[in-house]
């Protein structure tokens, strides 16, 4: 069997790059007030989103985002072949419950904050492999539901360390299709789990930076490209601290990552008191669905590499003294409408 779609160690080159025909993003109030507030489809001004628990609110975020992407494209949920979604909550309750009302054949994914890119990669494989013509990939996170699961009750008085990040409240959905022209997924690099031995659950950037660097360098080696080939290389949610570490690690291996952008740094500004920046599944998802998709469609960027970063943190293993492994998945988005 020929294996032409895989190149190098971990990279896939799609024969017929699936196109992101539509995206939808819904965020919470803090994200709406951030520097990218204008780029989201909808800003919800209440953390409860009209529900009576934060978990139900998060479920509504992802459900509404998926409904919105279907609506925007003027199709029905029944036209979608597969839904790939996941979130941070135990047993992925947001995605599971949303899928139960949507009635689309469903794959639940867990890649922590890399879930969006994991979904886009697998969705693209389904389409390029000929197993589907329309796939939705989606994810969500919610500051309050994440805090109560991973850390402290919201009203608990704590002083967050300067390395801590703020879980983004929101959800995004990407509609991938085999048909049209537009912004496509040309390559994907599937990450390995990297454990750098970081044990501090308030320092996710440090836990994820080695995984991000590993995936970016592997991607460049697999494709034979260099950093300058891309208009931009973006990481998911390393935050300010993680981005600085990644640039340092890249430098040690002879790569210039000083121009690296990070969704967690972009989504909030320094006046919003998030410390190192944003995090969570929704972080890279809403920034890509809003800001970067708009820039790609407008032709400002032609080709970017987005690396979703996930800290595979569990309260149980962390309390038992284990370190926090991390993963990073890279996706190349290209605008095929503007040829070179």
């Amino acid at each position: 069997m020929s294996n032409t779609k895989k190149i190098g160690k971990q990279t896939i080159r799609f024969d017929n790059p699936p196109v992101i025909v539509e995206t939808a993003s819904i965020v919470g109030p803090k994200e709406g007030k951030g520097p990218l507030g204008e780029t989201f489809d909808r800003v919800v001004d209440n953390m409860y989103f009209g529900e009576n628990s934060f978990e139900k609110a998060e479920r509504k975020f992802i459900e509404e985002a998926i409904k919105l992407v279907v609506e925007k494209q003027k199709i029905q949920a029944s036209d979608i072949d597969f839904l790939l979604a996941g979130d941070l909550l135990n047993q992925m309750i947001s995605a599971n419950f949303a899928a139960s009302t949507l009635g689309i054949p469903f794959f639940g994914l867990y890649g922590a904050c890399s879930t969006m890119m994991e979904g886009i990669i697998l969705g693209s494989m389904l389409i390029d492999g000929g197993y589907a013509s329309k796939v939705i990939a989606g994810t969500s996170s919610h500051y309050c539901s994440a805090e109560r699961q991973y850390r402290f009750p919201v009203e608990q008085g704590v002083q967050r360390p300067m390395t801590a990040q703020w879980t983004v409240t929101g959800a995004a959905a990407f509609l991938l299709s085999a048909e049209a022209q537009g912004v496509n997924v040309s390559h994907a690099t599937v990450g390995k789990v990297v454990d750098a031995g970081v044990k501090d659950p308030h320092d996710m950037g440090a836990a994820m930076a080695p995984a991000a660097v590993d995936t970016i360098i592997t991607h460049l080696q697999d494709t034979g490209r260099d950093v300058g080939y891309y208009d931009l290389i973006v990481t998911g949610d390393l935050g300010a601290v993680g981005r600085a570490i990644a640039a340092d690690l890249g430098n040690q291996q002879g790569y210039d990552f000083s121009q690296l952008e990070d969704c967690g740094v972009l989504i909030f500004d320094s006046s919003q008191d998030t410390h190192a920046g944003g995090s969570g599944c929704a972080c890279s998802a809403v920034v890509t669905a809003g800001h970067f998709m708009q820039q790609l469609r407008a032709g400002k960027y032609k080709r970017i590499l987005i690396v979703g970063t996930g800290a595979l943190l569990s309260v149980t293993s962390s309390q038992q003294g284990e370190s926090i492994p991390a993963i990073a998945h890279g996706v190349v988005l290209e605008n095929s409408k503007n040829p070179e």
Binding site: Q159, T163, G197, D203, I245
Partner: peptide
Amino acid sequence: QKAYEAQEYQQVVKRHSPRPKVLRN
């Protein structure tokens, strides 16, 4: 070897982590 690498990495992390504002706090 792994423990050594983790220790080395901690040095990198320390270099980039903002210090808590002890006096102000």
